[in-house]
Structures are given as C-alpha cells and as structure tokens.
Design a protein around this nucleic acid. Structure first.
Length: 425
RNA sequence: GGAGAGAUGGCCGAGCGGUCUAAGGCGCACGCCUGGAGAGCGUGUUACGCUAACCCCGUACGUGGGUUCAAAUCCCACUCUCUCCGCCA
C-alpha cells in the first residue's frame, strides 16, 4: 500500500512510477480528488463531534450539581447535532471506502536501483554463474526424460486433474523430496532461517495483506462455501504472519523458510509452456521471507538472493541473475532479482527464483511495525524470494544431468538424500 | 455439528452508562543509589488522524449495527479464541 500522505505530498513522483510500470497515472488524480473531499467532511464532522462532546460534558456537570436541573436545551441541541454527525459519518465512510478501493490497486514504487524499461526484454543481466553444459548427444526435454524412465506421468495427471498437472513416481518422486530436504537444510543450518510449516488455506484478508488481492483474484484458487484461498506461495503466510504486530528492533531481521505446495490458476498463460512441468497449477516451493528495518532492506535483499543462489551453486546448475525492469516488476516489489537456470530443452535461462524487496508495501497492508531506536513506530520492510522453486529445480537437474542412455546422474549433494543412489534408475 | 466461556494498551489484568485512554502490575526509557550490576526509590510511557512541528480537537476497549443528549459499560448480529461433547487422519 502506498502511503496516502506521500501521494498528497508528491503526486508527480507516484504518477511517474505508475507510468514506468505501464500502469494508469490518472488513478492518482482520482485519489487526490476523493481525498480532498473526504478530508473536508472529516474536519466538518470533527467540529460537530467536539461541539456535542462539550454539550454532553455540560449535561453531566449540571446533573452532578443538581439532579433536577433542566438540561432539555442542551439535550435538544445535542440531539440535532447527533443526527448531523450520523449522516456525515456515513458520507465519510463511503468516501473512505472509495478511496481505499483505488489506493489498494496501486503497486509499489520501484526503487532507484530498478532499471527502467517497458517489458521483460529490458531486464538487465547482473551476473552469470557456471557454464551451460555442452552435450555430445541430443539432450532430451524433461517431458521425454521423465516418462521414458516411467517416473513422470502427465497422462494420468490430466486424466484425474486436468491439464497442467504432473505425477512423479519412484526415484524422481524421491529426488523431488530430496531437493526439498536439501534446500531446507541449507537455509536453516547454513543461512540461519527458521523453518516453518504453514497452512495452505488462508483467509481473504491474508491474501490482501501480501498484495494478491484485490487485484489478482482470478489468479487464485478459492474454496466455495468458506471463502478460503489456496496459497499461491508460502509467502502469503510468512509475510502475513506478523500482521497487526509490533516487533522489536533487536529481533530484526527475522528470517523464515517454509516449504509448501503452491496453487495458481495460471489464468492468461494459455499458450505458454504447455508441455512439461514448467508451468503447472500445483507446484512445490521453498520460500524465504525476511522482516527487517528500512535501513537494511536493500542489503538484506542482496544476501537473500545470495542465499537462493547458493542452492544452484551447490547443485552445480548454471544460472544467471537478472534485475527486473520497471515494466516487468511484480505488484508489491520495489526491486526484484530473478534467478534463471539454464534449461537445455529451451536452450535458454528460465526463471527458477524471484527475490524481491517489498519495502514497506506489504507492511502497510498487513500493519507490521517495529519500534526504532528513537522509540518511534515505523513500518518494517519485508523481503521474499524462492529458495528455490522445487519443480523447476527438478526439471533443471533432470535436463542438465541427463546421460546418453536416458539415465540421470544424481547431483553430488543430493546423493545422501537419495540413500546413496548415484544414478537414476 | 452440539453446549458453555471469553475478546480491554507492548504484555497481564481491573473497570460494567457521563469525572475512562482507561486502576494495578509487568515491560520499556530516563534519573537517583552502586566500584559495577542487581534490588530499591522517583519520573515518564497507547496508537491513529489533523499539524512543518507542538498544542488543541477528533477517533479507537474483537468487527458491524442499535438504544441514549452521552456506550469499554446496555441490546442485536457476526468473527475469532478457549473448554467440554460428538466425528475424525
């Protein structure tokens, strides 16, 4: 959520930010008009309330001095003011909700570090790690490798659940599980994150707090009679966990890691990645979330990104880091680094993690504050990143570690998690 | 699903029509004391809106509505938490 005070003070900055994100800057004028009107009503109504309070005081005082005192004049006057207040309050509430409706559609302001650009093509590569493997045979895509081993079943998945689902079997299922344990171990033991296991169903307001709602409702799965949402990422829980809380500065940064399934409708991605398990409705992800002070959040983002990169390095998967440009930035993010892993089937780097600094955007929505050194309240900054998307990591392992005979070499670090299996099958 | 209890400040907890932002305690901050720390003593300490800032003023005792000149306090609905029973991995 963007601070309304900031919108009032520097509307042009916000408008420019919206334009950079290909969003509509006219929203700001609408908000300002509503805000001015609302403030006018509020101050009118405050004056009336002050007047009524004074009258009530007088009544109380009179009654205290003399129980039989005639206070009907005050009472009559107060009654009339009361009616006025009531209708004013209704007006204020209406204006408030109208204003709120628009403000909650505004995305976060990109940071100065975010490259300017209209779309994906103008994202900026920051660094590369590792060399894409040169195959001396024709490498297969994972949607052939898996089924050939009889360990990945797209047909059964779609028979039971429809398109964009996958069933893993046998050693590939085990490899998937190994990845999860491995990632959690690295982040907890080596990087100091606290492991969390979270509900996959959350209430509507939890989706609002992290910015999924109201704008992206069509992206989410919703349960009907109870209005629960299936989480599209564990971030919903981790970043919303401290809603309406006041944290102490000495506890910051808070670092959480959670493994969860993620559920996404993938509305509007009809032609994209229809083969394989790159884009499915249900996938698994290990998610990192931090809460920190505003002063440290950009440094913390560098560290969080490095933490996610560490997984790729330990698995010896070649990747690059890309800074998303303003036009490609997610709703709540001020700065985002995507990690892209090399996939032989695409002959391209493909997103496997997205690490963002949401600054105070989510903290305002979720009302997560802390007391700073001067004992003043301030909003925390929140960060999140995948560490990593498990399904896509599995794909990357299968494709990059494939052998000419269709078998898969298990990455060294995963062997202990596979009870010693070095080659699949 | 059935029965009951509850929701008050950073936390615990009192208040059950006006003098209540709200006793008391804990915590926190500052001061005194101390070689230092602790204990003890003293002072201060809700947030938000409005404001350049302060003061004033307004709002807020789970949420929404109602009664009243006036609601933390009375009434209604809802949400959530807890206890017991039922069902259940």
């Amino acid at each position: 959520m963007i601070d309304i005070k900031r919108i009032r003070k520097e509307p042009d900055v916000i408008k420019e930010a919206l334009a950079l994100r290909n969003d509509n800057p006219e929203l700001i004028d609408q908000i300002l008009a509503l805000d001015a009107k609302r403030r006018e009503w509020v101050s009118q109504t405050d004056m009336l309330k002050a007047e009524r309070n004074a009258l009530s005081q007088q009544v109380a005082k009179q009654k205290a001095e003399n129980r039989a005192a005639d206070v009907s004049e005050w009472v009559e006057k107060s009654k009339i003011i009361g009616e006025q207040i009531k209708s004013n309050d209704e007006q204020v509430t209406l204006l408030e909700s109208q204003q709120q409706a628009i403000v909650s559609l505004l995305p976060n302001i990109p940071s100065e570090k975010t490259p300017r650009g209209a779309d994906e093509s103008q994202n900026v590569e920051i660094r590369r790690w590792g060399e894409p493997r040169v195959f001396n045979f024709e490498p297969l895509p994972h949607w052939d490798l898996g089924p050939n081993l009889n360990m990945m079943d797209f047909e059964r998945a779609s028979k039971l659940s429809g398109s964009r689902f996958v069933v893993l079997k046998n050693k590939i299922a085990a490899l998937n599980r190994a990845l999860i344990s491995f990632m959690l171990d690295v982040h907890t033991v080596e990087h100091g994150y606290t492991e969390m296991n979270v509900p996959h169903l959350v209430k509507r307001e939890s989706m609002f707090a992290t910015g999924q709602l109201p704008k992206f409702e069509e992206e989410a799965y919703r349960t009907d009679p109870d209005d629960y949402f299936l989480i599209p990422t564990a971030e919903i829980f981790l970043a919303g966990m401290h809603r309406d809380e006041i944290l102490s500065e000495k506890d910051l940064p808070l670092k959480y890691v959670a493994y969860s399934s993620c559920y996404r409708r993938e509305a509007g991605s009809y032609g994209k990645d229809v083969r394989g398990m790159i884009r499915v409705h249900q996938f698994e992800k290990v998610e990192l979330v931090k809460y920190c002070t505003p002063e440290t959040s950009f440094d913390e983002l560098e560290r969080l990104t490095a933490d996610a990169e560490r997984i790729l390095q330990l698995l010896e998967l070649p990747y690059r880091v890309v800074s998303l440009c303003t036009g490609d930035l997610g709703f709540g993010a001020a700065l985002t680094y995507d990690l892209e892993v090399w996939l032989p089937s695409y002959q391209k780097y493909r997103e496997i993690s997205s690490c963002s600094n949401d600054t105070d955007f989510q903290a305002r929505r979720a009302n997560v504050r802390y007391r700073n050194a001067e004992n003043k309240m301030a909003y925390v900054h929140t960060l999140n990143g995948s560490g990593l998307a498990v399904g896509r990591t599995l794909v990357a392992v299968l494709e990059n570690y494939q052998n000419p005979d269709g078998s898969i070499t298990v990455p060294k670090r995963l062997v202990p998690y596979m009870r010693g299996t070095e080659i699949i099958p």
